[in-house]
Nucleic acid binder design. Structure first.
Lengths: 220, 220
DNA sequence: CAGAGCTTGTGCACAAAGTCACAAGGCCGG
DNA sequence: CCGGCCTTGTGACTTTGTGCACAAGCTCTG
């Protein structure tokens, strides 16, 4: 396989996990071949886009036939780097942190929970699903034991930057931030942000601007 | 300026809530004026982009001075349609659903919890934070009582489409889907998707591809 | 009241992403 | 084993988003 793969566009990267999810589903249904058209339908995108996206991974399709589900699945996992599990450390044992820790969707898809840590002494020692909340001081140790680890920030926004710094110091190189705050990290650390209220506000925007005549908002 | 406001680009819409969050913070600190430069720094983007984004809302800045925080805050809320609260109905009282229902970040930012419903008889009647889980059959009633409502899908992927259909039938016009599945809704319904595992996979990709020399992952 | 000093608002050029349309090429039936 | 049928892979083009650079315009000082 050509190792020097073209750089994959960000927009494509963001879609790959979706394709992966669909391929897993198809494989589970014992479907062994899929066309870009079908894949596009399942992913809710354009067929040409699917083909272009997949072509960044290499030439894995067969003209006139489609893509071999198992083979594509393998290549996709390879590309995404999810051939092995990535343990996750959740920082913050509040409502969100506990939910994320319990959320089966993580471990099911290759992201087992390594630990939950919290700065609040009162929370340390309490149970969260299968694990017990550990003190922040255990962070470095946990990270070392499971490297490579993904850090998940589930704290109030005010301490998000502090937590991020501690994660980086502990050796975490990928961080998913759920706190509503901007955090900055060194260049070589991967960082993504998910802000739940922000998503609702985006919905609110489109709802308020959708076809002013039919809005349910402000009924007489 | 022109009342029939130009259509606001999607990329800009996605950034507005972030500006809103920052403006709220600034207002809380009794800061009454902010420059595009400062705002850009706080939002982690380019200053020119901030000015262009804000200019879509109208001409609210003062050259040589900057933007009046309170006034911009008001206009921003207006633009986003968050001048009033948007009640939220969470469907699914599993781990994720319960967490979202308890998550203070929603109600704090104008999205109070109207109800939690679940199809599982065993969960109906149990407490989730301040509310009690209600049966799916109450959905239409809840929606009618709080219109307009945002529906949040926090169920397994397998039933996401079914739930979406029920939400639409009950009169919900905006849906936030946390289930790992594609759901389709009529044109006039706003829909957004958040897939937590998907975010981790994106991180995994960038981690696997970041500067091969420094990867902690064991790549040959 | 003029001029210096900022900061906005925007035209323009460029980059990224998305779409279309079609040639290339594998598969199968006759 | 050849010709028709399919579906991929991709070049060309369109649309959307980004960033620079600078004129416009407000404020304050002398």
């Amino acid at each position: 396989m050509d190792v020097h793969a073209r750089r994959i566009p960000d927009a494509t990267v963001a879609r790959l996990p979706e394709y992966l999810r669909i391929l897993v589903e198809l494989a589970g249904q014992r479907i062994d071949t899929v066309s870009s058209e079908r894949l596009a339908e399942l992913a809710g995108v354009n067929a040409a886009k699917v083909r272009k996206d997949l072509s960044y991974l290499g030439t894995y399709g067969t003209r006139g036939v489609g893509y071999d589900v198992d083979y594509l699945l393998f290549q996709m996992r390879q590309a995404l780097g999810v051939t092995q599990d990535w343990p996750v450390v959740v920082v913050g044992a509040g409502n969100l942190g506990r939910a994320l820790a319990n959320y089966a969707g993580f471990s099911d898809r290759g992201f087992p929970l390594a630990a939950v840590v919290d700065a609040d002494e009162a929370k340390v020692g309490t149970a969260v699903g299968d694990v017990t909340v550990r003190p922040m001081s255990d962070l470095a140790e946990v990270v070392k034991a499971h490297q490579p680890v993904i850090g998940v920030i589930a704290t109030p926004g005010a301490v998000a930057q502090l937590v991020a710094d501690q994660l980086v110091a502990a050796g975490v190189t990928a961080i998913l931030n759920f706190a509503p705050a901007l955090v900055s990290v060194p260049q070589n650390i991967s960082l993504r942000k998910v802000d739940l209220a922000l998503e609702l506000q985006i919905l609110s925007f489109y709802q308020s601007h959708r076809d002013p005549g039919t809005t349910t908002r402000g009924w007489p």
